[in-house]
């Protein structure tokens, strides 16, 4: 009887430790997965759209931005948001594998709107953009 009482807490301890180790390993696997699953170009695109949105929100009159982002990722406007997305446009990007969720959008201030001057989208790969504010509308164009 005494033996049984002595064994029981020991078994429970082992069980608790095992569960803790398993939970820890699952958490570790999750951390590893989330770290590796976001490719550099997605993180670059995320940062670029964040910076563009922040520039748009703070723009007084005119502004320019140099975009040194990944190839085949384009900047465009979507309702009240500014977005970057991977697109198979042009010869060089035709064979690029773009995933469906390869789009990152950031909403801008409600009183502002965004439009593009000459083209609907601008590639963020080594391009410079000009931003101009006209009556609450931000016009984005490619600096030539």
């Amino acid at each position: 009887m005494n033996n049984k009482k002595g064994i029981l807490p020991e078994e429970v301890m082992k069980l608790i430790i095992s569960v803790l180790v398993i939970v820890g390993l699952v958490y570790l696997a999750y951390l590893m997965y989330s770290f590796l699953r976001t490719p550099t170009e997605v993180r670059q695109a995320q940062e670029i759209v964040k910076q563009v949105a922040s520039r748009i929100n703070a723009l007084e009159n005119k502004g320019s931005m140099k975009l040194a982002g990944p190839k085949c990722w384009f900047l465009y406007a979507k309702e009240n948001q500014v977005c970057v997305g991977c697109k198979n446009i042009g010869d060089e990007c035709e064979r690029k594998i773009c995933k469906q969720d390869d789009e990152r959008c950031i909403p801008i201030k409600k009183e502002l709107s965004v439009s593009f001057k000459n083209e609907n989208q601008i590639e963020v790969y080594f391009n410079e953009i000009l931003l101009e504010k006209q009556n609450g509308n931000i016009i984005i164009s490619k600096k030539l």
């Binding site: 550099t40 993180r43 975009l67 190839k71 080594f126 391009n127």
Partner: peptide
């Protein structure tokens, strides 16, 4: 110089977060 043309000349791909 932080110039897009100059960068493009030496870098085919950028791997840093801007």
């Amino acid at each position: 110089p932080y110039d897009m043309d100059a960068l493009k000349q030496f870098c085919g791909a950028i791997e840093s977060i801007p």
